[in-house]
Deep mutational scan, measured.
Amino acid sequence: AFSSEQLARLKREFNENRYLTERRRQQLSSELGLNEAQIKIWFQNKRA
């Protein structure tokens, strides 16, 4: 489960760009304390 802070950040990123570069995913992973797979799957689900 994502914290409300993490979700807000993911939604902001998604609004700016529906697709993440690998580098951006790595940055978000480290900033949010999530693993890259969690972020990747969140974006895939959000696009679906």
Rank of each mutant, 00 (worst) to 15 (best):
A1N: 11
A1G: 13
A1P: 11
A1C: 13
A1W: 13
A1H: 12
A1K: 12
A1D: 12
A1Y: 13
A1E: 12
A1F: 12
F2E: 02
F2Y: 08
F2I: 11
F2K: 02
F2R: 01
F2L: 13
F2G: 02
F2W: 07
F2N: 02
F2A: 03
F2V: 06
F2C: 05
S3P: 02
S3T: 15
S3D: 06
S3R: 04
S3G: 04
S3L: 04
S3C: 04
S3A: 04
S3E: 03
S3W: 03
S3I: 02
S4I: 12
S4N: 11
S4V: 12
S4W: 10
S4E: 14
S4P: 14
S4K: 13
S4G: 09
S4F: 10
E5T: 08
E5Q: 08
E5M: 06
E5I: 07
E5P: 04
E5W: 08
E5S: 08
E5L: 07
E5K: 08
E5F: 06
E5A: 11
E5R: 05
E5D: 11
Q6N: 05
Q6K: 04
Q6C: 07
Q6Y: 02
Q6S: 04
Q6P: 00
Q6R: 03
Q6D: 04
Q6T: 07
Q6G: 02
L7I: 11
L7K: 06
L7N: 05
L7P: 00
L7Q: 06
L7E: 12
L7R: 06
L7M: 06
L7Y: 05
L7H: 05
L7S: 04
A8E: 14
A8R: 14
A8T: 07
A8K: 09
A8N: 09
A8P: 01
A8D: 11
A8W: 05
A8G: 06
A8H: 08
R9G: 07
R9V: 10
R9M: 07
R9E: 06
R9D: 02
R9L: 06
R9C: 06
L10D: 01
L10W: 00
L10F: 01
L10T: 00
L10E: 01
L10V: 01
L10R: 01
L10G: 01
L10P: 00
L10H: 00
K11M: 15
K11E: 15
K11W: 15
K11L: 15
K11D: 15
K11V: 15
K11R: 14
K11S: 14
K11P: 01
K11H: 15
K11A: 14
K11T: 15
R12M: 11
R12F: 09
R12H: 11
R12S: 10
R12K: 14
R12C: 12
R12D: 11
R12N: 09
R12I: 12
R12A: 14
R12V: 09
R12Q: 14
E13L: 05
E13V: 05
E13I: 05
E13K: 02
E13P: 00
E13R: 02
E13W: 04
E13S: 05
F14M: 02
F14V: 03
F14L: 03
F14S: 01
F14T: 02
F14R: 01
F14N: 01
N15K: 12
N15H: 11
N15F: 10
N15A: 14
N15E: 15
N15T: 09
N15S: 13
E16C: 12
E16H: 08
E16R: 09
E16P: 01
E16I: 09
E16D: 09
E16K: 14
E16S: 07
E16L: 09
N17L: 04
N17K: 04
N17I: 04
N17E: 04
N17R: 07
N17V: 04
R18V: 06
R18M: 10
R18A: 12
R18K: 12
R18I: 10
R18G: 09
R18T: 06
R18Q: 13
R18E: 10
R18N: 11
R18D: 07
R18S: 12
Y19A: 05
Y19E: 09
Y19W: 11
Y19C: 10
Y19Q: 07
Y19S: 06
Y19V: 10
Y19H: 13
L20S: 02
L20H: 03
L20M: 06
L20Y: 02
L20K: 01
L20P: 15
L20W: 04
L20I: 10
L20G: 02
L20D: 13
T21V: 03
T21D: 13
T21F: 02
T21Q: 04
T21I: 03
T21N: 09
T21L: 02
E22F: 06
E22G: 10
E22P: 15
E22S: 12
E22L: 09
E22K: 15
R23T: 14
R23W: 08
R23D: 14
R23C: 09
R23L: 12
R23A: 15
R23H: 13
R24H: 06
R24C: 05
R24L: 09
R24F: 05
R24E: 08
R24P: 01
R24V: 08
R24D: 05
R24Q: 11
R24S: 06
R25W: 11
R25G: 12
R25A: 15
R25P: 03
R25V: 15
R25C: 15
R25M: 15
R25L: 15
R25N: 09
R25F: 11
R25E: 07
Q26T: 09
Q26F: 07
Q26K: 13
Q26C: 07
Q26N: 07
Q26H: 09
Q26E: 10
Q26P: 01
Q26V: 10
Q26S: 09
Q26I: 09
Q27E: 13
Q27S: 08
Q27I: 11
Q27P: 02
Q27R: 09
Q27F: 08
Q27K: 10
Q27C: 10
L28T: 00
L28M: 04
L28K: 00
L28N: 00
L28C: 01
L28W: 01
L28E: 01
L28R: 00
L28F: 02
L28D: 00
S29L: 03
S29T: 05
S29C: 07
S29R: 03
S29Q: 05
S29P: 02
S29G: 07
S29K: 03
S29E: 05
S29A: 15
S29W: 03
S29Y: 03
S29V: 08
S30E: 14
S30R: 14
S30D: 11
S30L: 15
S30M: 13
S30A: 14
S30P: 01
S30T: 13
S30W: 12
S30N: 11
S30V: 14
E31P: 00
E31R: 02
E31Y: 03
E31A: 06
E31K: 04
E31I: 06
E31F: 03
E31S: 04
E31D: 09
E31N: 03
E31W: 04
L32C: 03
L32I: 08
L32V: 04
L32D: 00
L32Q: 00
L32F: 03
L32A: 01
L32P: 00
L32G: 00
G33D: 06
G33E: 06
G33A: 05
G33I: 03
G33L: 05
G33H: 06
L34V: 09
L34T: 03
L34S: 02
L34Y: 01
L34D: 00
L34C: 05
L34W: 02
L34A: 04
N35L: 10
N35K: 09
N35R: 08
N35H: 10
N35D: 15
N35G: 10
N35A: 13
N35P: 15
N35W: 05
N35E: 13
N35F: 06
N35S: 15
N35Y: 06
N35M: 09
E36V: 10
E36H: 04
E36N: 04
E36Y: 04
E36I: 08
E36L: 05
E36D: 07
A37K: 10
A37E: 15
A37C: 14
A37P: 03
A37Y: 13
A37G: 08
A37D: 15
A37I: 13
Q38D: 14
Q38H: 07
Q38G: 02
Q38M: 12
Q38I: 13
Q38A: 12
Q38K: 06
I39Y: 00
I39Q: 01
I39R: 00
I39L: 08
I39E: 00
I39H: 00
I39V: 08
I39D: 01
I39S: 00
I39P: 00
K40L: 15
K40W: 11
K40P: 01
K40H: 15
K40Q: 15
K40D: 15
K40C: 14
K40F: 13
K40Y: 12
K40G: 11
I41R: 12
I41S: 12
I41E: 15
I41K: 11
I41V: 08
I41F: 10
I41Y: 10
I41A: 13
I41C: 13
W42E: 02
W42Y: 07
W42I: 04
W42M: 02
W42N: 01
W42P: 01
W42A: 02
W42R: 01
W42V: 02
W42C: 05
W42D: 02
F43G: 00
F43Q: 01
F43S: 00
F43P: 02
F43K: 00
F43C: 05
F43D: 02
F43Y: 05
F43R: 00
Q44M: 08
Q44C: 10
Q44Y: 09
Q44S: 09
Q44P: 03
Q44A: 12
Q44D: 15
Q44G: 07
Q44L: 07
Q44R: 10
Q44V: 07
N45Y: 10
N45E: 14
N45K: 10
N45R: 09
N45C: 14
N45V: 08
N45W: 13
N45T: 10
K46R: 14
K46Y: 14
K46T: 15
K46D: 04
K46Q: 15
K46W: 14
K46S: 14
K46C: 14
K46A: 15
R47H: 09
R47C: 13
R47F: 12
R47G: 07
R47S: 10
R47Q: 12
R47E: 09
R47L: 15
R47M: 14
A48L: 12
A48H: 11
A48Y: 08
A48E: 12
A48K: 13
A48T: 08
A48Q: 10
A48C: 13
A48S: 09
